[in-house]
Computed example of a mutant assay.
Amino acid sequence: MKRLHPIAGTVAILTIATFWLSTAWSELSGSEQLIALVKMTIPWGFLLLIPALAATGASGFALAKGRRAGLVGAKLKRMPFIAGNGILVLIPCALFLASKARAGEFDAAFYIVQACELVAGAVNLTLLALNMRDGLKMKGRLRRAPT
C-alpha cells in the first residue's frame, strides 16, 4: 500500500494534467481536427485514470487506518469533492464533448461545456496537488509550514 498509493496518485494527476493541457493546447491551435482528436481520445484515457483514482482512494483509506485528524483528515475531506467533480462533471463533459467532436459540431454548447470542463479539471488538479503535497509532508519529504 505504501508504494501503490503514491504511484497511483501520480498516475492520476499526470493523466488529468495531460487531459487538461492537451485540451488547452488543441483549443489554442484553432485546428478543429486536433480538437476533435483530443476530445475523442480523452474518454479512452479513462481506462487508465479511473483505476488509478480507485487505487489511490482505496490505498489512501487503508493507509489512514481510521485516522481523521491533521493532514490525513484534510486529504479525506477533499476526496468527496474530487470524486464528485469527476463523476458528476468531468466524465459527462468529456463524453458529451467527444460526441460533439465526433459529429463535427463545434457550436456554442460545445464551447460552454468545454469551459466548464477546463474549470472543473483545474479544480480537481488543484485538490489532487494539495493531497499530494500533504502526503509528501506526512512522509517528511516536504517541510511543514510553521503554525
Rank of each mutant, 00 (worst) to 15 (best):
5 H>A: 05
45 G>F: 03
11 V>W: 03
62 A>N: 13
113 V>L: 00
143 R>Q: 04
81 F>D: 10
22 S>D: 14
99 S>D: 12
30 G>D: 09
10 T>Q: 01
36 A>G: 08
112 I>K: 03
78 R>L: 00
9 G>L: 01
44 W>L: 14
109 A>R: 06
129 A>E: 06
37 L>S: 13
88 L>K: 00
69 A>K: 10
34 L>Q: 12
142 L>A: 00
67 R>K: 15
10 T>A: 04
146 P>F: 08
91 I>N: 09
14 L>M: 11
18 T>E: 12
116 C>D: 08
74 A>P: 11
96 F>N: 06
75 K>P: 05
99 S>A: 15
18 T>G: 15
123 V>W: 13
134 D>L: 13
43 P>V: 09
123 V>K: 03
128 L>K: 02
36 A>R: 05
74 A>N: 12
102 R>Y: 14
56 T>G: 06
72 V>L: 11
127 L>H: 00
32 E>N: 14
102 R>D: 15
66 G>C: 11
144 R>P: 02
110 F>A: 00
14 L>E: 08
108 A>F: 05
125 L>Y: 08
46 F>Y: 02
20 W>Y: 13
19 F>L: 01
60 G>T: 02
6 P>Y: 03
132 M>W: 11
87 I>Y: 07
131 N>S: 13
132 M>H: 07
64 A>N: 04
115 A>D: 10
71 L>E: 15
16 I>D: 06
83 A>L: 09
100 K>P: 02
44 W>P: 11
84 G>I: 06
123 V>R: 07
16 I>T: 13
59 S>P: 08
7 I>F: 09
58 A>M: 12
112 I>G: 06
147 T>I: 11
76 L>F: 10
122 A>C: 14
138 M>S: 12
68 R>Q: 14
49 L>K: 05
79 M>I: 07
28 L>E: 14
13 I>V: 14
125 L>P: 15
122 A>I: 05
100 K>A: 14
137 K>V: 11
101 A>E: 10
90 L>M: 15
117 E>A: 15
21 L>I: 15
69 A>N: 08
43 P>D: 09
66 G>R: 06
146 P>A: 13
71 L>S: 13
107 D>M: 00
82 I>T: 11
71 L>R: 15
104 G>T: 02
4 L>R: 04
116 C>H: 01
48 L>T: 11
51 P>M: 10
111 Y>W: 04
10 T>N: 04
71 L>I: 10
123 V>N: 04
57 G>C: 05
4 L>W: 10
103 A>T: 15
1 M>R: 11
2 K>G: 11
18 T>W: 13
98 A>L: 07
39 K>V: 06
122 A>Q: 03
141 R>Q: 11
79 M>G: 01
